[in-house]
Design a protein around this nucleic acid. Structure first.
Lengths: 138, 138
DNA sequence: TTTTAAATAGTAATGGTTCTCATTCTTATC
DNA sequence: GATAAGAATGAGAACCATTACTATTTAAAA
């Protein structure tokens, strides 16, 4: 049976305090300040277990590090192509994929993984600045 | 400038011959039969370069290994949650995400990453068989 | 030809994640 | 309360996909 140990409580708290979407090692750094003897393995093990118990959401997405989310409500994310930052995204209309996948392949579809890609405001500003300087140096 | 070296040609050919969605090491095994002295680093480097030149598509998706696709037309994939196999998927209607993301976050959206999750026919069969046996043993 | 830039093979290094195992905590049972 | 059984922990090793490094080879440009 599942025990909500002290370590797990602290992990949940710190995941909440981190402005969401933390990686295992970010959580590790945070938790270590409160529980200096905790090990990285414990963080990984518990993030996994908490996810399998539906207490947190695993954002097992593309390239690089896995991230975790305490926000269990249905929502999607944008990933900055430049710095990799992940942010929640608000959709104008709810998405539905029901009946979208054609039948013949015989798969039983049970979900989708969707994330948006783009440039965050900060990286956009830096890139535009860079472009202007390039133009000036010609 | 970009050179279509012999190694690169063979990599492209083998990626085409592999029933699509091959991983770097699958390509490596295939190419090695024709070019025994090729190194895995060359495979990785060239898959990356070929992708950046738009000759192939990088499927930089969740958990596990990166995959590559010679099919450059817009299409999506289903991943089997059990065995991890990746298959092309045919949609009943084209997808459009234009204007779907609400403005205020200031991101400049340039794309989406989407994959479907489910059980492939084979794994579905095995699971159902397993379930029947479980029931029988009770 | 000579020069210069790219690409390659081979191998070491990285880094996120998982595994192992001895030890410590909890909870259930006597 | 003592004890037994199961979970969870900490520490570190192991794993493995991917990258980085470097001496050498290859091909294009001058």
């Amino acid at each position: 049976m599942f025990r909500l140990t002290h370590q797990r409580k602290v992990i949940l708290e710190e995941l909440r305090l981190a402005h969401s979407h933390a990686t295992a090692d970010e959580i590790y750094e945070r938790v270590k300040k409160r529980l200096p003897r905790i090990s990285l393995g414990t963080i990984y093990r518990n993030l996994e277990i908490l996810a399998s118990h539906g207490r947190i959401r695993k954002l097992d997405f593309a390239g690089g590090q896995r991230r975790f989310d305490i926000n269990l409500t249905e929502h999607y994310h944008v990933r900055c192509l430049n710095c990799g930052k992940l942010k929640d995204v608000v959709l104008q209309a709810p998405l539905s994929f029901d009946g979208l996948v054609a039948g013949p392949n015989g798969y039983e579809i049970s979900g989708v993984r969707l994330e948006f890609l783009g440039l965050c405001p900060e990286c956009k500003a830096v890139k535009q600045k860079g472009a202007r300087e390039d133009a000036g140096n010609k």
